[in-house]
């Protein structure tokens, strides 16, 4: 495959931006969590791009393992974050019967005044 590294990076940048935009647009907490997953994947793509780039620069039959190992850990952490996030969403749902970000209004400046 002769796709240049830049294209991988551009793909990752686009995915990251879509994730960021979604993070700010959406109010459904579950969708917000999904946007965070998107951003994590975009980061993974950047690591993959870097690893491939560095391996190819080093020459034939070379590898750069830092990237793939980081990606593995990120996937683990993504699972962890999804679990914690969804548990928090469930806790919120139990209290408010809603998963809307707008429900998070108890703690504002002056609410305790």
């Amino acid at each position: 495959m002769s796709v240049p590294t830049e294209h991988l990076l551009i793909l990752s940048a686009i995915l990251f931006s879509i994730g960021v935009a979604g993070f700010f647009i959406r109010r459904n907490l579950i969708v917000v969590l999904m946007c965070i997953e998107l951003m994590l994947n975009a980061a993974n793509l950047a690591f993959v791009a870097g690893s491939r780039h560095n391996a190819f620069l080093a020459g034939q039959d070379q590898t750069d393992l830092e990237g793939p190992i980081m990606v593995t850990f990120v996937i683990v952490v993504a699972a962890v974050e999804a679990a914690v996030g969804l548990a928090l969403v469930i806790a919120l749902y139990r209290r408010k019967q809603s998963v809307d970000l707008r429900e998070l209004t108890e703690l504002e400046d002056g609410s305790h005044a």
Partner: peptide, 8 residues
């Protein structure tokens, strides 16, 4: 949100 996304 779209603005921030576009800037990024």
């Amino acid at each position: 949100g779209i603005g921030i996304g576009c800037i990024v």
